[in-house]
């Protein structure tokens, strides 16, 4: 057993400071294990949100040594243990206590996105027919566990607080899953441009880099949506084509 120092953000929601905790760590431990050990042995009031410990519920999102990561999926042997490991709550959302943030803004954003609107059923029994090739693209987006690490690392939200104007990468992925779905007939491009702020994204790819599900957020979701917005609002040839064909 080796000893390690964890520098954990302590706060009651207004203000706060780092507090150092020394604890024994062993092979195979993840950051969440260490935080639980500290909670059990040294700081019974330490608040941390967690659930599955398997990288599938998206509850234990935090910033470990400055990078947004899931605590349950960050093994200690990936980190330099000769110096304190900093554990902070996500920066893009208001703190509630210690490592717990209020992510309810995300759920409010989701309500603003137009819902799935399928075409009329293909068969008399009310069912549809789709080709696998057509749903392959959107299936990647269904892997999202809503950990909100992409929202946290996005500098538009994190640094510039554009929460009222920009829905963030998570909800651009959600919109892409609906917009590219072969059965969907709803049009969300106007909302994307005018209300959801897709133009604020400057393609830093940070969202893709922190995604624990390895969703290719920037290249497969955001840029294709940007291109669809270009079709609709910026490309004169596309506009002419639509004018003459009615498509």
């Amino acid at each position: 057993m080796a000893q390690a120092t964890f520098r954990i953000w302590r706060s009651n929601g207004t203000g706060g400071a780092f507090q150092d905790f020394k604890t024994e760590v062993s092979e195979g431990m993840v950051v969440l294990d260490a935080v639980h050990k500290i909670q059990a042995e040294q700081a019974g009031d330490l608040a941390v949100r967690w659930n599955c410990k398997a990288g599938k519920c998206g509850s234990c999102s935090a910033e470990i040594n400055g990078m947004p990561r899931l605590m349950c999926m960050t093994r200690l042997n990936e980190l330099p243990m000769d110096e304190p490991v900093t554990v902070e709550p996500m920066h893009a959302f208001p703190g509630i206590k210690d490592l717990v943030t209020d992510v309810s803004w995300n759920y409010e954003v989701k309500k603003k996105i137009k819902k799935f609107k399928p075409r009329k059923p293909d068969a008399a029994d009310g069912t549809w027919r789709m080709q696998q090739a057509d749903v392959d693209r959107v299936q990647e987006f269904r892997k999202c566990i809503e950990c909100f690490l992409c929202q946290d690392v996005c500098h538009v939200l994190r640094e510039h607080d554009k929460h009222d104007e920009f829905i963030g990468p998570r909800y651009l992925v959600y919109t892409a899953a609906l917009e590219m779905h072969p059965l969907d007939t709803e049009d969300r491009l106007k909302d994307l441009k005018f209300d959801h702020g897709i133009g604020y994204c400057n393609i830093t790819t940070c969202c893709r880099q922190v995604c624990p599900e390895n969703i290719t957020i920037t290249e497969n979701a955001i840029i294709p949506l940007k291109e669809r917005v270009v079709d609709q609002y910026y490309d004169p040839l596309s506009m002419l084509f639509r004018m003459f064909t009615g498509k």
């Binding site: 953000w9 706060s11 207004t14 203000g15 706060g16 910033e63 040594n65 400055g66 990078m67 330099p80 110096e83 900093t86 902070e88 709550p89 920066h91 893009a92 959302f93 208001p94 703190g95 209020d102 803004w105 939200l157 994190r158 640094e159 607080d161 929460h163 009222d164």
Partner: peptide, 21 residues
């Protein structure tokens, strides 16, 4: 959004807790 009031936000050029280069 209340995120702007969060006291642990960065806010200065180059400020980060990242340890890598």
């Amino acid at each position: 959004m209340a995120g702007a009031e969060v006291t642990w936000k960065n806010g200065k050029f180059g400020t980060t807790q990242r340890r890598d280069r």
